[in-house]
Design a protein around this nucleic acid. Structure first.
Lengths: 121, 121
DNA sequence: CTAACCGTACTATTCGTGATAATACAGTTA
DNA sequence: TAACTGTATTATCACGAATAGTACGGTTAG
C-alpha cells in the first residue's frame, strides 16, 4: 500500500480508501485484472475494521472501478471509459477554478503562470 | 439575501451560510463595516434555527471575515489581506488541478483550452 | 476432503456532529 | 421602557461513521 489513513482528515475512512484506490487505478499503478488486497488483510494493514474496507470495496465496485468474485477476490476493471470521464471532470474543475481566480481579481498573467507551473511539475 | 440553502447539499447548513457570506464579502458585494443581517432575522428568512446562524457567524468572526459587537450587530471586516490569501490559495488549486489533469493523460492543448474557457466566462 | 482462504451479509452498539428547541443575560437604541 | 442586538447554556433528536462479532457460501491449495 502506497498511502495511509489520515485520521485528522475530515473525510470518512472508507472514502479515503476509495479515492486512494481510484487514483492508483486511474494512474495505471494497478493494471486491469490485478487482484486487490483482501478485505481482511487490508483491514489488518490499515488497522481499521474489516467492515470499513468492505464498504469501500462495495463502492469501488458499484462505481465500476473493480469487480468482485466471492471466494476469489476483488479485481481491477478495464477503466478506459472511467478515465475519460475523470479527464472531463478535471477539465471542468480547471475552468471553474480559473473563473474563481478571475472573480477574486487575479490577473490573467498570474493565472497563466500558475497553469504553466502545473504543467511542468 | 442572494442565495438560499440547498437541502440536497451534503455540506451542513451552517457551512453553506459561511461560504455564501464569505463569497459576498470577497467579491465586494458586502463592503467593509456594512452590517450583516441579524441572527434572528436571517434564521427566519432561511427557515433554520437561530443557533445554526449563530454558529455560522461565530466561524465568520474567528476566520476574520466579520467582527461582532454585542447589542449592535455583526459587521464586515476590512478583508484586503484575506482576499490576498484567498487569491494565493486559488492559484495553488489551479496548479494542482492542472497537474492532476496531466497525470490523467490530458494533453496540454486541451488544458489550455479549458483555461481559456475559464478566463472568458 | 478439508482447512484456510475469499467476498458478502447481518445485527448491535458506540460515538460524534449537525440541527432543533427553549431559555436566559447583558449591551444598544429608538 | 420596549424592542432589538449578540452570546451562552442545556437538553434532545437524527443520522452516519466506525467498531464488534458472527455467519454463510464459494474457491483453492495441501
Amino acid at each position: 500500500m502506497l498511502w495511509t489513513i489520515d485520521f485528522r482528515d475530515k473525510r470518512p475512512i472508507y472514502e479515503q480508501i476509495v479515492s486512494g484506490i481510484e487514483d492508483e487505478i486511474l494512474r495505471g499503478v494497478m493494471p486491469p485484472d490485478e487482484p486487490l488486497q483482501s478485505v481482511r488483510s487490508l483491514a489488518m494493514e490499515l488497522s481499521v475494521n474489516p467492515n470499513t474496507i468492505q464498504k469501500a470495496y462495495r463502492q469501488l465496485e458499484t462505481d465500476g472501478y473493480t469487480y468482485s468474485i466471492p471466494g476469489r477476490g476483488s479485481f481491477v476493471s478495464n477503466v478506459a471509459e472511467l478515465k475519460h470521464i475523470r479527464q472531463k471532470e478535471t477539465l471542468q474543475k480547471i475552468r471553474v477554478t480559473v473563473h474563481e481566480a478571475k472573480v477574486l481579481g487575479v490577473s490573467d498573467t498570474e493565472i497563466n503562470e500558475a497553469v504553466k507551473g502545473g504543467l511542468n511539475t
